[in-house]
Design a protein around this nucleic acid. Structure first.
Ligand SMILES: [Mg+2]
Length: 243
DNA sequence: GCGACAG
DNA sequence: ATCTTGTCGC
């Protein structure tokens, strides 16, 4: 199966070299790729949902990316992997994908099972150029992808109700860019926005279906934990090795 | 120029 | 994101 889809970018080679860019070039690339993002209803209900996240170790300049797959109905973990890579890009608001996407893609390629949808720890459409981390990764894997961020990057919104499931529209000017979704009663809401191949309603529904007692959806929450664990043992391993 | 600012 | 123990509230 042809993955990643080079057709979506014109040239896979160009995209492979597009990870190492200066801010101005990265900004231009986002503007060029944003029109490729498709906000549309899910074509078929996802059976397997994957989640990804990263743990950083500034001292060693390394990062640990994890990908965890969950089957729905009932929600249960079926696979998990982690990879180690050098940190490729500094954290710059608006350019998170250039720091995290390469490693996320590597982790997803290492996942031993196929997945129908992906949950990312960051914004999707709710981005200055409508091209957050979830859009970048979603376009690459060409599968339904949702951005589930813990805080706001841009946009205005009202406060959603305190009950789990309550929502408030996240907007920029007259355009809707996402949803402020309460995944747990009386707990800070999440900022959910489409990454690719899914719409606002679908991103809300999928996020809620993947939530089990915690603020963060399970795929992303477990990926966060695995990345942190990989970091701990990764550092311990390099220490005992003398590095 | 100043403040905001995913992870 | 990361540095980090105990403490407050549902
Ligand atoms: Mg993260």
């Amino acid at each position: 199966m042809p993955w990643p889809p080079k057709e979506a970018y014109g040239s896979l080679d160009a995209m492979l070299h597009a990870w190492d860019l200066e801010i101005p070039a990265a900004k231009a690339l986002q503007a060029e790729l944003a029109p490729q993002v498709r906000v549309e209803p899910l074509r078929s209900p996802p059976k397997v949902v994957a989640g990804v996240d990263i743990a950083f170790d500034k001292p060693s300049g390394r990062l640990f990316a994890a990908a965890v797959a969950f089957r729905l109905d009932p929600l249960e973990q079926i696979a998990a992997v982690s990879v180690c890579r050098p940190i490729p890009f500094p954290y710059v608001p608006g350019y998170l994908s250039f720091r995290e996407a390469p490693a996320i893609l590597a982790a997803l390629e290492a996942l031993p099972v196929s997945f129908d949808a992906l949950l990312v720890d960051g914004q999707g459409l709710a981005h200055p150029r409508r091209f957050g981390l979830a859009c970048h990764v979603g376009l690459w894997i060409d599968r339904p992808t949702v951005g589930c961020a813990k805080s706001r990057l841009i946009g205005e919104h009202e406060e959603p109700g305190i009950e789990r499931g309550s929502t408030a529209i996240l907007r920029k000017g007259d355009d809707r860019i996402g949803t402020v979704l309460r995944t747990r009663t009386n707990v800070r809401p999440l900022f959910v926005s489409p990454g690719h191949r899914i719409d606002f309603a679908g991103s809300i529904e999928l996020t809620l279906r993947c939530t089990a007692g915690y603020r963060m959806p399970e795929p992303t929450r477990q990926a966060d934990r695995l990345a942190a664990a990989a970091k701990r043992e990764g550092l311990a391993a390099s220490e005992s090795a003398g590095g």
